[in-house]
Design a protein around this nucleic acid. Structure first.
Lengths: 124, 124
DNA sequence: TATTGCCATTAGACTAAGTCCAATATGAAA
DNA sequence: TTTCATATTGGACTTAGTCTAATGGCAATA
């Protein structure tokens, strides 16, 4: 438990909605997404692993959430440019709802933990 | 992506604080924790895997968050009874803080997603 | 011109987390 | 005597995530 979850280590689960969010605004290639994630201020993705991101992009493409196309022009190296699909947009909409539900449930859990540590009757 | 995270599938990550919370109130053996988790109303742990829970308990014990002792009396089968340690209590306190931070960050992400889907200027 | 550094992606090997199936053993109820 | 609930464990497997490293071009720099 070097990286104990209790200190916050698992938010990287939530790269998927961020990727969808970026691609909902504009098409981007993997490395650009990587840079954007590293600069993200809402959450800390500074230590994100490139291999992991590229694999995630492929998985999302395989799942039909993204389309990919190789761009060979105006670029020294070929870039794989990703675009969000209709399914991806639906997924993003689903994420929107789910994220707020998550936030509520996690806050409720936090409250339950608080109460269990300071049982009622502390007010005296 | 059968169980797409966007529909909510990963909250089981948060069994750890729930276990600590239960054990902060009273000592319990694995199976009792299992039953309590299945009846938990704050979050849905109805489908929790027993093997996974027992493994988690051992891991937490190895990490020093819990103590365990076999109870052979007043019970048909021997039971492994778990108790929270001082380190476990600190971990629980850490969880309390972390959970609220998580809740805020996830809500912020949800808000960012909302805004990206409904760009500003919708109010007309 | 040799080297360093940034861009851009991929592969391989590994660890950790989580799931599924099955086994064990006892006691009570049908 | 079969079934159900208790109580725990083991093995095999899948998925996710991390680390290291390789490729290969372009630009700057020493």
């Amino acid at each position: 438990m070097k990286k104990c979850a209790c200190k916050g280590a698992f938010l990287e689960r939530f790269i998927q909605p961020v990727i969808l969010m970026y691609l909902n605004r504009e098409n981007l290639h993997g490395f650009a997404i990587l840079k954007k994630l590293k600069e993200c201020e809402t959450m800390d993705y500074s230590a994100i692993d490139p291999t992991g991101l590229y694999r995630m992009l492929k998985k999302m493409t395989a799942a039909g959430l993204l389309n990919s196309a190789w761009n060979m022009e105006n670029t020294p190296q070929p870039r794989c440019v990703y675009a969000i699909t209709e399914a991806g947009k639906l997924c993003l909409a689903s994420w929107e709802k789910t994220l707020f539900e998550y936030a509520q449930e996690i806050a409720a859990l936090g409250k339950a933990v608080s109460e269990s540590m300071n049982p009622e009757g502390q007010n005296g």
